[in-house]
C-alpha cells in the first residue's frame, strides 16, 4: 500500500512535469498553428542553464530563476529570428525546420558545455524525505516539484482565463485574423506566447535536472511524450493538456511499477517478464492510438478546428 501511494505521487509528479512541457507546446500549436519539435531543445537548455547558473551563484533557487529567465530570452529570440517565418506554412515545413533547429541546439550545447553531461545536485534543504501522511515518507524534492508545478498550473489558469493577455491568447487561438483586425499587436503577442512556452519548457528542464543527468538529447524522448499529451488532450486546449498529462503520468509510472507483476501473474513468469518491459513502454502510445481512433480530434478538441 505504501508503495502504491508512493508510485501514485510519482505519477502525479511526472504528469505535472509533462504538463509544463505540453502546456507550452499546446499554446504554440493552438495559437500560432506551429508544430515545434525544438520544444525539447528548450527543455534541454533549461536544464543546462540551471546546472550552470546554480554552480556560478552557489544557490539553487537563484540558479533556477536565472535559468528560466534565460530560456525565456532564448525562446523569444528564437521566435523573432526563426519561428516567425514559419507561421502560416505547411506543417511539413514546421517539422523540417524545427528538426533542423534540434540538430543546431544539440550541437551548440556540445560546443558550449562539451559532450559529457552535467549534474545539478539537489539542494541540502530538499535532500531528505518528509512524512506527508502518517507513516508515509516521500522525497522532499519530489514533493516540492508537485507544489511548484501545481502553482504554475494555477498561475497559467489565472493568466489564460482571468487576465487581459489571457483573453487575447484565447481569442488568438480561435480566430487569429480577427484579433489582428481588432488592432492587437499580433507579432508581440506571438513572441510573448512563444517565450512563455519556452520558459515553461525551461522550468521543466530545470526541475528534471537534479533527478536525471543533464545531457545532450535529453529533450528528444520527453518531447514525444509531450506531443502525445497535446494530441490526446486536443490541440490548443490547456485543460486537455492538463488532464492528458496527468493521465499519461499516472499510466506511465504505475504501468512501469506494477504492470510487470500483473503480466507475470497472467502469463506466467517466463512470458510475462519478457513481454513486460516492451509493453509498459508502449502503453501510452497504445493509449494515444486508442484515443485518436475513437476521438480523432483528441479529448478536449477546440471547437473552432
Amino acid at each position: 500500500m505504501t508503495l502504491f501511494i508512493e508510485q501514485c505521487l510519482n505519477g502525479l509528479q511526472f504528469g505535472l512535469l509533462l504538463f509544463l512541457l505540453a502546456a507550452g507546446l499546446t499554446l504554440v500549436f493552438g495559437i500560432m498553428d506551429l508544430v515545434n519539435l525544438a520544444h525539447g531543445s528548450l527543455y534541454m537548455l533549461g536544464a543546462y542553464f540551471a546546472a550552470t547558473f546554480a554552480a556560478w551563484t552557489g544557490s539553487f533557487v537563484l540558479g533556477a530563476v536565472l535559468a528560466i529567465l534565460a530560456t525565456l530570452l532564448v525562446g523569444m529570440a528564437l521566435e523573432v529570428i526563426a519561428m516567425r517565418r514559419l507561421y502560416g506554412r505547411d506543417h511539413l515545413d514546421h517539422v523540417l525546420g524545427t528538426f533542423g533547429l534540434i540538430l543546431f541546439f544539440d550541437e551548440l550545447v556540445r560546443l558550449i558545455w562539451g559532450p559529457g553531461g552535467l549534474s545539478l545536485p539537489v539542494p541540502p534543504w530538499l535532500d531528505r524525505s518528509i512524512e506527508i501522511l502518517p507513516g508515509i515518507q516521500y522525497s522532499a524534492y519530489r514533493f516540492a516539484i508537485i507544489v511548484v508545478t501545481l502553482a504554475v498550473a494555477a498561475f497559467l489558469y489565472v493568466l489564460v482565463m482571468r487576465t487581459r493577455i489571457g483573453m487575447l491568447i484565447r481569442a488568438g487561438a480561435s480566430n487569429r485574423e480577427m484579433v489582428g483586425a481588432l488592432g492587437v499587436n499580433i507579432k508581440l503577442l506571438y513572441t510573448l506566447v512563444f517565450g512563455l512556452g519556452a520558459a515553461l519548457a525551461g522550468l521543466a528542464g530545470m526541475i528534471q535536472a537534479p533527478i536525471l543527468t543533464v545531457q545532450i538529447g535529453m529533450g528528444e524522448n520527453i518531447l514525444i511524450l509531450a506531443f502525445v499529451i497535446t494530441v490526446i488532450g486536443g490541440i490548443g486546449s490547456i485543460r486537455g493538456a492538463f488532464v492528458a498529462a496527468l493521465l499519461v503520468g499516472f499510466i506511465d509510472t504505475l504501468g512501469r511499477a506494477f504492470f510487470p507483476q500483473i503480466l507475470v501473474e497472467l502469463l506466467g513468469r517466463q512470458a510475462g517478464s519478457t513481454a513486460a518491459p516492451a509493453l509498459s513502454s508502449m502503453m501510452i502510445y497504445i493509449l494515444m492510438a486508442v484515443i485518436l481512433v475513437v476521438k480523432p480530434q483528441g479529448l478536449f478538441a477546440a471547437s473552432s478546428r
Binding site: 515545413d93 525546420g97 533542423g100 533547429l101 534540434i102 540538430l103 543546431f104 550541437e107
Partner: peptide, 15 residues
C-alpha cells in the same frame, strides 16, 4: 560541429 551548420541549412532550405 558540422550539425551546427546543417541545422540552420535545413531551416533555410525550408524557408
Amino acid at each position: 560541429y558540422w550539425q551546427l551548420v546543417l541545422g540552420p541549412l535545413l531551416l533555410i532550405i525550408v524557408l
